[in-house]
């Protein structure tokens, strides 16, 4: 397998794809948002229970490639317990990782997504769930679509 492809499909990603964390509807959610990639058909719903400004609980549901499923799963583990501002900051870091391959300053599982930047067509797979999560966080009624966001 080529270096690029093994960078893309890192163990962490395969693991989250095989055993997604926090998958399914969250019965206690008080916020949710839907995201889709019209060009490839990927779908993702993100459910949040906000406790004040803090994400007390989070889950996702949806279908898509290994990158999108692993990204959604890993995201839920990263965002749980974070404030809105912290979530924004995490997404900014994550975006640097997937779009530019920039390693994060602190050790983080998110670094597993650095290989995505060599596959520009897959960046939107990795960011879809994050768009949905941020929309849910901001209580935006619209569905997230990565095609109208700049990746």
């Amino acid at each position: 397998m080529s270096a690029d492809l093994s960078d893309l499909y890192q163990q962490v990603i395969l693991d989250h794809n095989r055993r997604p964390r926090n998958r399914g509807k969250l019965p206690t959610a008080n916020r949710s948002a839907h995201g889709d990639n019209p060009s490839c058909g990927d779908q993702c719903d993100v459910f949040l229970r906000l406790d004040g400004d803090r994400i007390a609980e989070i889950s996702f549901d949806g279908s898509g490639c290994a990158i999108s499923q692993a990204s959604a799963s890993l995201m839920t583990t990263q965002l749980k317990g974070k404030t809105a501002a912290e979530a924004e900051k995490l997404y900014a870091d994550f975006h640097e990782i997937v779009a530019n391959g920039k390693e994060p300053e602190e050790i983080s599982d998110l670094a597993a997504f650095a290989g995505v930047h060599a596959f520009p067509a897959r960046i939107k797979c990795a960011t879809l769930s994050w768009h949905a999560a941020l929309n849910a966080l901001h209580g935006e009624p619209v569905a997230a679509t990565t095609e109208s966001h700049t990746d």
């Binding site: 397998m1 080529s2 492809l5 893309l8 499909y9 060009s39 490839c40 058909g41 279908s63 898509g64 490639c65 290994a66 990158i67 499923q69 596959f119 897959r122 797979c125």
Partner: peptide, 22 residues
């Protein structure tokens, strides 16, 4: 158990042009 886009990405590595999607 394997999504079409992952299949197509792997096939591309083998020099095979396929299409995955709707």
């Amino acid at each position: 158990d394997v999504h079409a886009h992952d299949v197509v990405t792997f096939a591309d590595e083998d020099g095979i042009a396929l299409r995955g999607g709707h």
